[in-house]
Nucleic acid binder design. Structure first.
Length: 199
DNA sequence: CGAATTTGACCAGCGC
DNA sequence: GCGCTGGTCAAATTCG
């Protein structure tokens, strides 16, 4: 597709997981189990169609929640990041070794309000797949970090309704510095502050 | 010309 | 065991 110009950088950058400040979106409300937990910023439509969206999201949550409970400690209520251990050996190709077949990789999911699917977090991603999910008219995109040895995967899914809501799920941890610089929203903000500092 | 996308096929896990 | 859903690969294509 054509690359959309970044209207406004999403502040999901920073150190991703580890930031004490809360993000906009959140998907990890299993212990809280609040109905509007992951829909905090998104007003739940009174329409019954909203059920589909939630259902779809529910699946994602379910998986994440499952492992989240396992880790327990990693999941902080109110936090915007959830961890999930996933098992997969087919992919990665020549990445895994013997022994760890059921290696569960941590998965971090969070929701963001954005018009574009591609959230630039400073890393280089290569799309390796796109699948349509049921109950969702929008396809889910699968990305992978292009850094050698970095098997970090990312998938982006948006809700059928409210295309403004995008669910991004990170899998793995980057073991390399960010290529891009001065892309941090905070960094830009800082500069903006400098420029916008009244005297 | 090289790298990133696109898109269909293929495969594994799960439910019935 | 079969079929569905989700996830990945890989060839072809496009983009820079």
């Amino acid at each position: 597709m054509e690359n959309y110009p970044m209207l406004f950088p999403i502040s999901n950058s920073s150190t991703a997981m580890g930031s004490s400040h809360h993000h906009q979106g959140l998907i990890s409300n299993f212990d809280g189990q609040s109905s509007n937990g992951f829909l905090g910023l998104k007003s739940t439509s009174t329409s019954t169609s909203a059920h589909d969206d939630q259902n779809n999201l529910h699946q994602l949550q379910k998986r994440v929640a499952e492992t989240a409970r396992d880790n327990h400690g990693l999941l902080s209520r109110g936090g915007s990041i959830v961890t999930e251990n996933h098992h997969h050996q087919i992919g990665d190709s020549a990445g895994k070794k013997k022994g760890e077949k059921k290696v569960r990789k941590p998965r971090y999911a969070f929701q963001t309000r954005s018009q574009v699917d591609i959230l630039d977090d400073g890393y280089r991603w290569r799309k390796y797949g796109q699948k349509a999910v049921k109950n969702n008219k929008f396809p889910r995109s699968y990305y992978r970090c292009t850094y050698q040895g970095c098997n970090v995967k990312k998938q982006v899914q948006r809700l059928t309704k409210d295309e403004g809501v995008v669910v991004t799920t990170y899998e793995g941890v980057h073991n390399h510095p960010i290529e891009k610089t001065s892309d941090n929203f905070e960094h830009i903000l800082s500069q903006m502050q400098i420029y916008s500092t009244p005297f």
